[in-house]
Nucleic acid binder design. Structure first.
Length: 560
RNA sequence: CGGGGCGUAGCGCAGCCUGGUAGCGCACACGGUUCGGGACCGUGGAGUCGAAGGUUCAAAUCCUUUCGCCCCGACCA
């Protein structure tokens, strides 16, 4: 392609609406433009990147026997009602009526429609297994679109669905996908982890996420470098740093006006991990007292899974329900349900005395109070791995893919049954698997950039090579540039030639911004000696190459 | 949905507090000089100041309402 004829609106200054690096660079380098909150236009360069990613997706999907199909974006409500998600999903689903008043929605995912198809067409175990996939638009009315292309209301997704005769077969489809995903993200040049995740609204028991480390991400994952354990903090199990407990006798201590763990800890000169903090939560079914070690925080989502939606109690409510001033709550002698973190099951602690200005020292869980024990604390850096006790690491990540074992969550309500070898009717066992190409692109930028711009991994760059003829008025420059342009194209290399009549500096700056991996600089001085310059965008190393050897050298360089 | 910030030329911003002819830089067009890391000089085009209502002799500026965008949180198949 010729730069002069391609629409590449680069910007000198960063638009003020952008915050994350990938967002800024995508706008500045002319890859995307924003239409409205969470709605993006992909310009020619951006679209080329997505298509390159999609090509990799297709190759790897076909390699595991997945078949590409295409489903409607507009769905009848009825199918979603049958699985219960029409009601279970809230405002995030775009809903509308057709001209006859029939309820419809815009597809945010395609489990329902895929399963509907399966229910119509799959009759026998001989029809199984099947893997169907599509690369297609999803619409979600996100509460808060953010970070450019990372969280949008309309986006393209590669979603695939497996249909198997048994759990064992599902295991195989799941593993095939996990392996394909590893190959895909590796080919896209990303650093990533596969971690355990929360199945959430998708249902099913097992789910994994593929996470690309980046400060722009919305998720945090826990990693054990010793045994390889990795999980989203939403489900991560961790052990608190080990503590040697003192054999304190049970006694009240005077703590005038010291309320928070921090205050009491400072006042007594005793570390926070010797404390139990008590939080009163208001759930739908009533108040719940949550107990955590003083150096840990409650994880809202973990708690929500146990008691449903909740909020923390107001000061007045604490007084009314527990009869205690907030800050001096202890776990003993209350009628309310108590849920305690597993980490405080053993030990000797200090906690509120249920009496203003007093705490109790020497309290022993199990002996002085009882509770329902759950993992409700937030895993954090320095916690120990629950599998091998090694210290855990926390990393912020972009979720670039996920895989779910669905089981029969959709096949039963939508009656996707088949007959097995014995003529018995059985529900199809399903899995679903998603990848967001735009997130791959954004993650690639987040992980590969410098202060001058993007540094694309070779596999997903919009072009393989950019030719920079520095002086468009020099006949020799043009002749050599055009010749190289032709040769490289016939060698099946995607080439962008910056044929604009612009100053060298402008071309250098734009080339660095756009981030094509290899730059070929054609300048008069080098040309006089019969050389051109081949420069690597990432390392900034350049080599002088003889004009006659250029095409072969570059072809080699690109393919490597 | 709760909290905060911002809407003035394509982009980045000043002006608003204290009302009085709408500005700067970049970009764009033309002419000239320049030409290996975002050139320089000159000339020029471009804005119903997000929208509506109000106060006032007079509103970008003050008041009310509303729309949009961004950030934090809640939420997130």
């Amino acid at each position: 392609m010729r730069f002069s004829r391609m629409f590449i609106p680069t910007l000198r200054e960063t638009p003020s609406e952008a915050e994350s690096v990938s967002h800024k660079l995508m706008l500045r380098a002319g890859y995307v433009r924003q239409l409205a909150a969470g709605l993006y236009i992909f310009l020619p360069l951006g679209w080329r990147v997505l298509n390159r990613i999609n090509r990799i997706l297709k190759e790897e999907m076909e390699a595991i026997g997945a078949q590409e199909i295409s489903m409607p974006v507009l769905h009848p409500a009825e199918i979603w009602q049958q699985t219960g998600r029409w009601d279970a999903i809230g405002d995030e689903m775009f809903r509308l009526k057709d001209r006859t008043g029939r309820d419809m929605c815009l597809g945010m995912t395609h489990e329902e429609i895929m399963t509907w198809l399966a229910s119509k067409e799959i009759r026998s175990y001989r029809d199984l297994p099947q893997i169907w996939y599509q690369i297609q638009t999803k619409l979600r009315d996100e509460a808060r679109p953010k970070s450019g292309v990372l969280r949008t209301r309309e986006f393209i997704m590669k979603d695939s669905y497996s249909f198997d005769a048994s759990e064992g077969e599902l295991e195989k489809s799941y593993r095939l996908h996990a392996e394909a995903y590893h190959r895909i993200f590796k080919r896209c040049g990303l650093r990533f982890y596969q971690v355990e995740s929360d199945p959430g609204m998708m249902g099913g028991a097992v789910a994994h996420e593929f996470m690309a480390p980046s400060p722009a991400g919305e998720d945090e994952i826990v990693l054990c470098e010793n045994c390889g354990y990795g999980a989203n903090v939403e489900v991560a199990i961790s052990l608190s740093p080990e503590v040697r407990f003192e054999d304190w006798p049970f006694e009240e201590v005077h703590t005038p006006d010291k309320r928070t763990v921090h205050e009491v800890s400072d006042f007594l000169g005793i570390k926070p991990h010797y404390f139990i903090k008590s939080l009163l939560l208001m759930a739908a079914k009533g108040p719940v007292l949550a107990l955590l070690r003083g150096d840990q925080e409650l994880h809202d989502k973990k708690m929500q899974k146990i008691i449903g939606p909740f909020r923390t109690a107001l000061k007045d409510e604490v007084k009314e329900i527990l009869g205690v001033e907030a800050g001096f709550i202890g776990p003993m002698g209350h009628e309310v349900e108590i849920i305690a973190d597993l980490n405080i099951k053993d030990g000797v602690y200090i906690t509120g005395a249920n009496r203003e200005d007093y705490h109790i020292k020497g309290i022993r869980p199990g002996l002085h109070f009882d509770a329902k024990w759950h993992d409700i604390h937030t895993a954090k850096e320095g916690d120990r791995c629950s599998k091998c006790s090694a210290p855990l690491k926390i990393e912020r990540c972009i979720e670039i893919g996920n895989i779910f074992k669905l089981g029969t969550k959709y096949s039963i309500p939508l009656k996707a049954f088949y007959l097995d070898e014995d003529g018995q009717e059985r529900p199809v066992i399903m899995g679903s698997y998603g990848i967001g190409p735009a997130r791959i692109a954004a993650a690639a930028i987040e992980q590969n950039n410098d202060r001058d711009g993007i540094i694309w991994p070779k596999s997903i760059a919009p072009f393989d090579v950019e030719i920079l003829p520095l002086n468009m008025k020099d006949v020799k420059t043009i002749e050599i540039s055009e010749d190289l342009y032709r040769r490289l194209r016939s060698a099946n290399i995607d080439v962008l030639i910056d044929d604009r009549d612009a100053r060298a500096g402008v071309k250098f700056k734009d080339a660095d911004l756009i981030g094509i991996p290899t730059h070929i600089i054609i300048g008069e001085k080098n040309l006089r000696d019969g050389f051109i310059e081949v420069k690597d965008r990432k390392t900034r190393e350049s080599s002088r190459v003889k004009v006659e050897e250029a095409a072969a050298y570059i072809t080699d360089h690109v393919k490597s």
